[in-house]
Simulated assay, not measured.
Amino acid sequence: MKIVHGIAIAAICFGAVPAEAADLILYPIQSGPETIRYRTGIPTLNIETATGSVTVTPLPLDHNHATFAVAVYNKGDDSVNVGIENVTASIGQNEIPVLSREELQKRAKSRAAWSMVGLALLSGVAAAAASTAHTTDHYYGNVRTPRGTYSWATSYRDNSLGVLAATGAVAAGTAGIVGIQNRLEYTLGTLATDILQTTTVDPDNSYGGVVVIEKPSGVRIPYDVTLTVHFNGADYPFTFRMTEQGKNKPPAFSQSALGNRHRAPADPSATGAPVSTASASSDSLPPPAASSS
């Protein structure tokens, strides 16, 4: 009964976890001078001004937080700083916080801590349940003595199977926690290098990083979010729709927004093709001048 009860508790605790949310995606919306290009289905938006160029690519969501890759190019004459302090996000008239590297690291540690607690709890429940497993053997016999024959009965409870199972469950839990710690270290290292941080961009140089914005509370999906990069004296707004994949897709970008690169005129001499050197025909020559006598 104890085994069944322990397993029931585990099922209740972990069965209460909500079902995984539907897959969400960020679809780009044409709203201004941006151009769009695709690479293996992933869109990249670009806005050009006299002082700079900014590109934004939507990335897979981080725990349903809108996430972007942002890159800037300095076309000005002077060096300029850029970081998350140059990025704002809004839904309608409401501004949404852009998360700093420190905040993201803090949340990554918190998520890892909860995963460790959950894994430790699960392995503990499994160990407790397994430790109650046992085999019991009963032994009976008769002993003859000079004073008579006596009957005896005893039992022996072998708990080694339960101990082995509990040890295995604890070992698996420990290995899982170590794996979480390793992944956390990798995540924190990635955040330290990939998140957009204040950097000086010299003329004719570029810089880029990842931007994550806060998940809005009380806002129903779908919603449109605008990410604006303030760089070198100009604003670069990009708008995306957060929605379930394949649903509520915004209209496709116009042909003029594709940022077409036109084919350069062919140079016949570059291909080795013969170039005509024929002179004009006699019909096109002016008549000879009359001679004076």
Rank of each mutant, 00 (worst) to 15 (best):
M1V: 13
K2E: 14
H5T: 15
H5L: 14
H5S: 14
I7S: 12
I7F: 11
I9Y: 14
G15T: 08
G15S: 07
A16T: 14
V17W: 15
A22Q: 15
L24C: 09
Y27M: 11
P28F: 04
I29M: 10
I29V: 13
Q30G: 12
Q30H: 13
S31F: 06
P33G: 15
R39C: 06
P43C: 01
N46C: 15
T49M: 07
T51Q: 12
G52L: 04
S53H: 11
S53D: 14
V54C: 05
D62Y: 10
V70N: 02
V72L: 05
V72Y: 01
G76I: 05
D77Y: 02
D77C: 07
S79A: 13
N81T: 13
I84M: 08
S90D: 06
Q93D: 15
Q93E: 15
V98Q: 01
L99G: 04
S100G: 08
L104S: 06
R107P: 00
A108R: 05
A108T: 03
A112H: 06
A113H: 10
S115W: 06
A120K: 00
L121N: 03
L122M: 04
V125I: 15
A130W: 08
T135K: 08
T135Y: 02
H138R: 03
R144I: 07
R147F: 10
T154Y: 04
T154R: 08
D158K: 00
L161P: 07
G162A: 05
L164T: 08
L164P: 06
A166R: 02
G168V: 05
G189W: 03
L196H: 08
L196F: 04
T198D: 13
D204A: 14
S206H: 09
G209H: 07
I213A: 08
I213Y: 00
E214C: 04
E214F: 08
S217G: 14
V225D: 02
V225Y: 00
H230T: 10
F231S: 01
F231K: 04
G233S: 02
A234F: 12
Y236S: 05
P237V: 03
P237F: 00
T239V: 06
R241E: 00
K247Y: 11
P251W: 08
A252P: 10
A257K: 00
G259V: 09
R261K: 12
H262N: 11
A264Y: 11
S269G: 12
T271K: 08
T271Q: 06
P274E: 07
S276Y: 10
D283V: 09
S284A: 07
P286R: 08
P286A: 06
P288Q: 02
